[in-house]
Design a protein around this nucleic acid. Structure first.
Lengths: 232, 232
DNA sequence: TTAAAAAACTGATTTATGTCATATTTTATT
DNA sequence: AATAAAATATGACATAAATCAGTTTTTTAA
């Protein structure tokens, strides 16, 4: 037994990245048989910048945080968040054998790990798969570039407003989301000091634009938030 | 006659993007026969954000400037530079039918234009080509993300130093490069006001780190520039 | 359950950077 | 060659944002 079950697991996986639908049954079977399923606790490091690339990861549940480390690991910039159905590590494919960005678990995460050699073999053998991967890579990197270009164009209030809106719309898909998203995370995402984050989040709460309690962010006045994001 | 000559032109083109070496003779012939060669004068707009995607462009000579426009086109951020051998428009493939970023000629440019439908057809039919395009896309977008993340982490002196180094190493491939690179261009690339650019460039000249005259930038003290880029 | 550590908060102060006004130089146009 | 227009330069000033210091709250660990 075992093996057909495993294939079914992958076939029926509701969080499968779109590109896997382009694989033949045999190819999917190969993925299913060799993939590893891993659970990470909140805060754990999933992938470390500077190590050898060994796999492509699929987020099944939870949210992962992609960030760049500078010099002494004190300094970081958050680059992206990955949610269920998204692949981690596409940016390294055929580009660098060294992992470009660290990834950690923002919340508890379940991931599937696919050997990078298998992934690259599939790319080389299946053009539909490759085309879909191009689509994913473009989608991801355009979003990243867009976010950061817009972010750096804004003043601090605008940055926080923008970040909250993007988190709500593109990461958590909800107007109120529960996540251990610290002031430092906000600071590292928006390129500002955590003191400033604290101050601005407070004005947003005072102005009844958002509500925050024990890690839950709730958007109360989206229109206002959008206005601040645009102007600020 | 004509047609074989045209094919040879493409076959022997020294500025061909790497991926075209993956095409079969017939495929390359198809590109050669339908491609358009266009000349742009410095400052002319090559591709306008918000229009329909119609082509992929190859830079044959000159440097093109990729930038994002905000609200009223007053505000811009420079995102990337494209030099000979690089493709423009890869980020739009299979992602958006609308051009994401405007492109203009930083210097006089010669470009080849390839119909987007032909390009996508090639991708769908030739997996080696597709894999090489993935490589290019990753290379380009990683560089863009890297530059902007690093840039925004630095203070103003560091930003200018970093920008000059990147221009020298990755765009112009020389320690002294002649380009109409205005203060405003610097400002739009590094996310700072042009007044600050002026000031900092002056201190760099006073400190004999660079020399600038009529559009020519010359790095005099690269070690110092690297130090400022790292620390600042 | 309590102690210790980390994160969040707040005000005062300093610093970095942007804005404004004006002068000068360079480039483009007639 | 002359004029207009744009880009560059420079100082004075305003303001945004970071840092510092100290307190409170929350989380983690014993």
């Amino acid at each position: 037994m075992g093996k057909p079950e495993i294939l079914l697991q992958c076939l029926n996986c509701s969080n499968k990245a779109e590109c896997f639908n382009r694989l033949s049954p045999n190819e999917l079977k190969e993925v299913a048989e060799s993939k590893l399923s891993i659970h990470y606790k909140k805060g754990e490091i999933i992938r470390k910048q500077g190590t050898f690339v060994s796999s492509i990861l699929l987020v099944k549940t939870g949210i992962a945080k992609v960030y760049k480390e500078f010099d002494h690991a004190e300094n970081r910039s958050i680059i992206d968040f990955k949610k269920p159905g998204q692949l981690i590590g596409l940016a390294d494919i055929f580009n660098a054998s060294i992992v470009q960005y660290s990834v950690s678990a923002l919340t508890d995460c379940e991931l599937c790990s696919i050997d990078i050699r298998l992934f690259e073999k599939l790319l080389n053998n299946n053009v539909d798969f490759a085309v879909d991967v191009i689509k994913s890579i473009n989608f991801q990197s355009n979003n990243i570039i867009d976010f950061h270009i817009k972010n750096n164009f804004k003043q601090l209030h605008g940055r926080i407003a923008h970040a909250i809106l993007v988190l709500s719309e593109f990461v958590f898909d909800s107007d109120d989301f529960d996540v251990a998203f610290s002031r430092r995370d906000f600071a590292e995402l928006t390129n500002m000091s955590s003191m400033s984050v604290v101050r601005i989040l407070k004005t947003f709460r005072d102005d009844k634009i958002i509500e925050m309690k024990n890690g839950l962010i709730q958007i109360l006045n989206k229109a206002k938030l959008e206005q601040i994001s645009r102007i600020g």
